[in-house]
């Protein structure tokens, strides 16, 4: 699973270096990943969290939507392929990268209570266009290669990290249902905005 999650970023980044994917292609890939994410959320994640007898699940979902709209303010919509490149920026856009990293980290959390692999593949597909957009953005911003490579590697490690932590850290495993509900909210926001 770790390998699959990292592989999607590798595929995305390398495809930018080898072929220059057209805007149209990225858009269609994004649309597909948005639809996939939405249906995984509705068909698998939602029924799963509502199996538990918790009254506040709905609140957590709404909270997730709120979190994502805050994150989106900082990431300026990289998750759905909106990047406005300012050529020759010297400064690394930390806020954008941190919120994108958080976003990737959150995605890894619900993976640990998934028994079938549809969410894993949804995230796999979802991360390909995002890493294409991220890599294109970094290259066009003329950062040093070392900076670009380390940012992409960090980004690739975030989802596996979320998966690992939600599996091992006690608080995360204890409140996995609530966390998954928050992430359902995030997924609902992302996928509907993409579509």
């Amino acid at each position: 699973e770790f390998f699959v999650l990292i592989l999607s970023v590798i595929i995305g980044s390398i495809s930018v270096l080898i072929t220059k994917p057209s805007k149209k292609f990225i858009q269609i890939l994004l649309t597909f990943s948005g639809a996939y994410l939405l249906s995984v959320t509705i068909l698998h994640l939602l029924p799963e969290v509502y199996e538990m007898n918790t009254k506040n699940i709905g609140l957590f979902i709404l909270f997730g939507i709120l979190i994502q709209s805050i994150l989106e303010n900082f990431s300026k919509g990289v998750e759905h392929g909106h990047v406005h490149v300012h050529k020759h920026v010297e400064k690394v856009p930390w806020l954008l990268l941190i919120s994108l990293g958080l976003h990737a980290f959150f995605e890894g959390i619900p993976l640990s209570n998934e028994h079938n692999h549809s969410l894993l593949w949804a995230i796999f597909i979802h991360k390909i266009p995002i890493s294409i957009v991220l890599t294109t953005f970094l290259i066009q911003s003329k950062f040093k290669n070392i900076v670009i490579i380390s940012i992409v590697i960090l980004f690739a490690l975030m989802t596996p990290l979320g998966f690992f932590i939600s599996n091992t850290v006690y608080i995360f495993t204890k409140y996995l249902t609530e966390l998954t509900a928050i992430i359902i909210g995030i997924f609902l926001h992302i996928s509907t905005i993409i579509l």
């Binding site: 858009q27 269609i28 597909f32 948005g34 639809a35 249906s39």
Partner: peptide, 16 residues
């Protein structure tokens, strides 16, 4: 039209 197909495909894959 391509986007419509992409959406339907995305839905269909998880449903199956």
């Amino acid at each position: 039209f391509k986007k419509l197909i992409a959406i339907l495909l995305g839905f269909a894959i998880t449903w199956v």
